[in-house]
C-alpha cells in the first residue's frame, strides 16, 4: 500500500485544482447560466434562428430540448466532459508515466514488487482518484439540480445521467494509461492531456455536425449522453460496448507492455 499512498498523496494538489475546475464548470453552467437561460427562452430562441444550422449542431445546441434541465445539462456536458477528460488523462499520465518522465524507472523496477502488482496498484490509485472526484461531482450536481427546483421524480435519472461523467472519465483514464506506457518520452503531462481532451471535443463537434452514427463510436463524449438517459432512463447498449472495448483494449495492451517491456538505461 506504500505505492498507493504515495501515488494518491502526490495527486492531492492536482486533484484539488481539477475538482474545483469541474465543479465551477457545472455550477456556472447549471447553477448560473441555466436559470437566466430558462427565463429568457423566447428571446434566445429568436436569436438562435439567426444562426446557421450547422453551427448550432456543432456546438451541441439542440433547440428542441435545450430549455429543459436535461437538455441544457446535455449541452453543458460537452464542456464538463472536456474538463473531466483532461483531468482523467492527467491522472493516468501522472501515475503511470511518473517514473518514465523522471527517468527513475530503475528505482521502482528494482524494488521487490512484481510488475503486475505495480500495474494493479497504480490502476487502483487512478480509479480511487477518479471515483472520489465523481462522488463529489455527483453530489454537487444533484444539489444544483434541486436548487433549480427540478422534479424529484426525475432525480434518479439525473443521478444516472451524472454518473455518465465517471464512465467517460474511465475511458479517458484508459487512454491516458495507454499513452503512458506506449509513448517513448513524456515531456508535458498537461500538454498531452489537453490535446487528447480537445481532440475528443472536436470529434464531438464533427459527430454533431455530420450526424453519422459511425462517428459516434469514435467520440467518447457521446458514449454516455445525458439526454438519452433523461429521456429514456438508460444509456445506449452499443455505446456501452464501445466504451468497454476501448477500455479493455487500452488497459490490456498497456498491461502487456508494462509487464514485458525492457527498461533501458537512461
Amino acid at each position: 500500500m506504500n505505492i498507493f499512498t504515495y501515488e494518491v498523496k502526490s495527486q492531492a494538489r492536482s486533484f484539488l485544482v481539477w475538482n474545483v475546475a469541474l465543479l465551477l464548470t457545472v455550477i456556472i453552467f447549471m447553477g448560473g447560466v441555466y436559470p437566466i437561460y430558462a427565463e429568457s427562452a423566447q428571446d434566445i430562441l429568436e436569436m438562435m434562428k439567426g444562426f446557421p444550422e450547422g453551427f448550432l449542431e456543432a456546438f451541441g445546441f439542440n433547440i428542441a430540448c435545450l430549455f429543459s434541465y436535461g437538455g441544457f445539462y446535455s449541452f453543458s456536458y460537452v464542456y464538463i466532459a472536456l474538463v473531466a477528460s483532461i483531468m482523467a488523462v492527467i491522472v493516468a499520465l501522472s501515475i503511470f508515466a511518473r517514473e518514465k518522465k523522471m527517468k527513475c524507472l530503475d528505482f521502482i523496477f528494482t524494488k521487490p514488487i512484481s510488475r503486475p502488482a505495480l500495474f494493479g496498484i497504480k490502476t487502483l490509485a487512478s480509479l480511487s482518484i477518479v471515483i472520489l472526484s465523481n462522488i463529489i461531482y455527483s453530489i454537487i450536481n444533484l444539489v444544483v439540480y434541486y436548487l433549480n427546483g427540478q422534479d424529484s421524480e426525475m432525480a434518479g435519472r439525473f443521478v444516472l445521467a451524472s454518473s455518465g461523467l465517471l464512465f467517460t472519465q474511465l475511458v479517458f483514464l484508459a487512454i491516458g494509461v495507454f499513452l503512458s506506457t506506449f509513448m517513448k518520452k513524456i515531456r508535458s503531462v498537461s500538454g498531452i492531456a489537453t490535446s487528447v481532451g480537445f481532440i475528443a471535443f472536436i470529434l464531438t463537434a464533427l459527430a454533431n455536425l455530420l450526424e453519422e452514427e459511425a462517428m459516434y463510436f469514435i467520440t467518447p463524449f457521446k458514449y454516455f449522453d445525458p439526454l438519452t438517459v433523461m429521456e429514456e432512463g438508460h444509456y445506449e447498449v452499443k455505446y456501452i460496448i464501445a466504451a468497454i472495448f476501448v477500455i479493455s483494449l487500452c488497459m490490456g495492451s498497456s498491461y502487456v507492455r508494462f509487464i514485458k517491456s525492457d527498461v533501458h538505461a537512461v
Binding site: P112, I113, A265
Partner: peptide, 18 residues
C-alpha cells in the same frame, strides 16, 4: 524476481529520483 530483489541493493550509474 521479487524474492531476489529483497536481497539485492542496486546503485545505477546515473541516479534519477522523483
Amino acid at each position: 524476481r521479487e524474492k531476489i530483489l529483497t536481497e539485492v541493493g542496486y546503485l545505477p550509474s546515473e541516479v534519477f529520483y522523483y
